[in-house]
Design a binder for these strands. Structure first.
Length: 440
RNA sequence: GUGGUAGUAGCUCAGUUGGUUAGAGCACCGGAUUGUGAUUCCGGGGGUCGCCGGUUCGAGUCCGGUUUAUCACCCCA
């Protein structure tokens, strides 16, 4: 017989794995609801063009795309944002602002797998649209932090790096760069820590020519800033036009709003100013942030930022927006490594233990009754010694076992055994439901 | 797309310079045990030693290829 493997990068979930998956989804959903976000979803399969419009044609090599039977070029979604942008655009005029939506769904990327990276992963997406001001960032980053706290993680375990593409633009403009040059430079900044110095210089030369070394020094200086005061001082040393100065002080006010807001929520200790975060693709327009484990063992836990221009680019109206995504793969690895992943499987409320055939029929009658009343009930399908059945009852995770032996049947009772403290009591079978309701 | 490492039971692994019928622990199933979860004892099912080829009287073991997994690079929405 041929053997079939799962496709590369795709997972299957046995019950004990699925229990962990459910735990992650449950916390995601719970915290998003507490922040008053509404759940939605988009299609898993979309036209290829939707994604190439957003990210450029070169993205195709990383997509699960193909031609469908109608000759359409289609792709499994690599991310949710383009679908979200379309959905919001379609009803932009009818939606109450701010629009606070979240989604939990599978995404697909055709990539080589490695640690924390698969070809199918589930992502929590949270987006807040229609709010221009930095209070949107407060709400969203607050939700990000609260979610990770919800898994039992603490300040010892993770933190959020906060950066700002606007500040970079102001800084680079003050050094005489503008337009596409700024985008190119940020592309290099994104790789700053990973790239050897000579390569960095070579790439900067393409933008800055002879002034590459000067530019590199300026970037290095900027990357070291870790407080609002340091940022203000750094700009003060630059000769800038009056308009730029005004823009900067307005931006610093935005920064203060974000930091003060998160501080008031009690999350100040989780947030660290780190201007090295600029995030790869260039559609982010303002604050950008990423969450990391503190030991630096894993890839980013979550990442996001402001993308004010995207909805319009996807055919919608002007719609300011900020959002983040959090994948289940890296998060799951971190939770397991930190002992924060609960180990449980689906359990039952009751386990019926039966003697002979008559006892089994009595038990089945009560089992059906309890199940109709909403309880989860299990019993052994085949006849077995009491001892074995008790063992099975314990390993089923049931809180109580219901014992149907010949003695009980004669007296018209069922013996209810508490599997935790091993106490037992006889309950007349006619009153089983009432007795159970008091207990469970 | 480029490179490193690994592949023996469901899981974790052992397997001697190449030598009879490939082993252990855990897990699972049955029995001792048709009135109670432990312990113990007995038994059982399970393997194309990733796959193909080569060397050899003889290959889980040596050689070549291949495939899969994994880690790193590239990329990361």
């Amino acid at each position: 017989m041929a053997t079939f493997n799962t496709l590369p990068g795709f997972r299957e979930f046995y019950p004990e794995d699925y229990a962990q998956r459910k735990h992650i989804f449950q916390i995601w959903r719970q915290v998003a609801r507490r922040f008053a976000f509404q759940e939605f979803d988009g299609p898993i399969l979309e036209s290829l063009e939707l994604f190439t419009t957003k990210s450029g044609p070169e993205i195709e090599s990383q997509l699960f795309c193909f031609e469908d039977k109608g000759g359409r070029q289609v792709s499994l979604r690599p991310e949710l944002t383009p679908s979200l942008a379309r959905m919001v655009a379609a009803r932009a005029n009818g939606l109450k602002r701010p629009i606070k939506w979240f989604s939990i769904g599978d995404n697909f990327r055709y990539e080589r797998m490695q640690k924390g990276r698969l070809r199918c992963f589930t992502q929590l997406n949270v987006d807040l649209l229609g709010e221009q001001g930095p209070s949107a960032e407060v709400e969203l980053i607050g939700l990000l932090v609260q979610t990770l706290i919800g898994f039992g993680l603490t300040e010892e375990d993770f933190f959020v790096r906060l950066s700002d593409r606007n500040l970079w633009m102001l800084y680079l403009a003050a050094h005489g760069y503008e337009g596409e040059a700024i985008g190119s430079i940020l592309g290099v900044v994104d790789k700053w820590e990973r790239m050897p110095e000579d390569k960095l210089l070579a790439q900067l030369q393409e933008v800055a020519g002879e002034k590459a070394a000067e530019l590199k020094a300026a970037v290095d200086t900027f990357l070291k800033l870790d407080s609002l005061e340091a940022i203000r001082d750094c700009f003060a040393g630059l000769a800038a036009e009056e308009a730029a100065t005004e823009e900067l002080s307005a931006r610093l006010v935005d920064w203060k709003v974000v930091l003060d807001g998160l501080g008031a929520m009690g999350f100040g200790g989780f947030v660290k100013i780190d201007l090295s975060i600029v995030r790869g693709l260039a559609y982010y327009t303002g604050f950008v942030f990423e969450a990391f484990d503190k030991k630096g063992e894993f890839r980013a836990l979550a990442g996001g930022g402001r993308y004010d221009a995207l909805v319009k680019k996807m055919g919608g109206p002007d719609m300011p927006a900020v959002g983040f995504g959090m994948g289940d793969v890296v998060l799951g690895e971190l939770l397991k490594a930190r002992g924060k992943m609960p180990e449980f499987v689906d359990t039952v409320d009751f386990f019926a233990v039966t003697g002979g055939d008559d006892e089994k029929l009595a038990a089945l009658s009560d089992v059906a009754l309890l199940r109709q009343a909403g309880y989860s009930v299990e019993y052994q399908l085949k006849a077995q010694a009491f001892g074995k059945q008790m063992k099975a009852a314990v390993s089923s995770g049931a809180r109580f076992s219901l014992i149907y032996g010949s003695e009980e049947l004669e007296k018209g009772v069922v013996k209810l055994r508490n599997l935790a403290d091993r106490s037992e009591q006889d309950i007349p079978r006619g009153q089983l439901l009432e007795a159970v309701r008091e207990l469970v």
